[in-house]
Amino acid sequence: MDHRPQAWGRPRDDIYGAYDASYLQTSGPKTATQSPVVTGTSVIAIKFKDGIVMAADNLASYGSLARFTDVKRLRTFLDTSVVGFGGDVSDMQFLDRHLKELAIDEAYEHNDDQQQQDDDDSHHKSTPGTALNAANLHKYLQKLMYRRRNDFDPLWNQILVGGLDAARKPFLASVDLRGTAFTSPSLATGFGAALAQPIMRRYAATDEDAARLTREQAVDVVKECMKVLFYRDARSLDRYSIAVVTKDGVELSEDEQLERQSWAFAERIRGYGTQTV
């Protein structure tokens, strides 16, 4: 056996073969953070007349392994906005800490802002508060994500930001790991963009449609979408978080269970897996 210090801790060449040194790159760009490791799947959200509803399940997957089953992927900001994270969970933790710091900074100067809103709502519209609202927060995150992408060190997330804008109207927008940002009456990340978005568009194709939705309808649509996602997305879970943002603040429930599931449709599925049609 080779007892030289260079060989300590190494698999023995005579048993395992020579070590493939191509894994230890000594030149070229660092790529450690350019692929996600522990990931969350879809986040979905829809506007309604007084605010927005957002939901994401409580699963963090390690590849295809359902690794963590109580992960909170919806985060509140200053009790005025909610941020939903899809993609890498450690990058989400980084962002969450960063946003918390930002929220503390905000509280230094603006701890009487909420009070002004309570005092006089109509007055508030003409002189909007100076605290960060959801639209500002979304812009901030977009700049952050784009900058990180240009540093070749992206945060591997697709993010939905929901809340109210400066005019106190419902606001919903998304930003991804490339810094691409857009807004829509309903939004979904990941698999949800294919599976949940068409359902939500039936109820809120335009802002006018969304302005006719009540809170109860919006919550029902989102819950229905979460069920469809659980049926069809293999990296999803039947426990989820749901947040409703209105001008009264954020109501976040982090331990919801999918109800009234019916797997009868599964019988009819043919054409893959172990079935032979």
Binding site: T69, D70, V71, R73, Q93, D96, K100
Partner: peptide, 16 residues
């Protein structure tokens, strides 16, 4: 100050 009476969450913690 008011130190939280609840179990103090770790900043950025994702699960319980």
């Amino acid at each position: 100050g008011f130190d939280s009476r609840e179990e103090a969450p770790v900043d950025g913690e994702v699960g319980s």
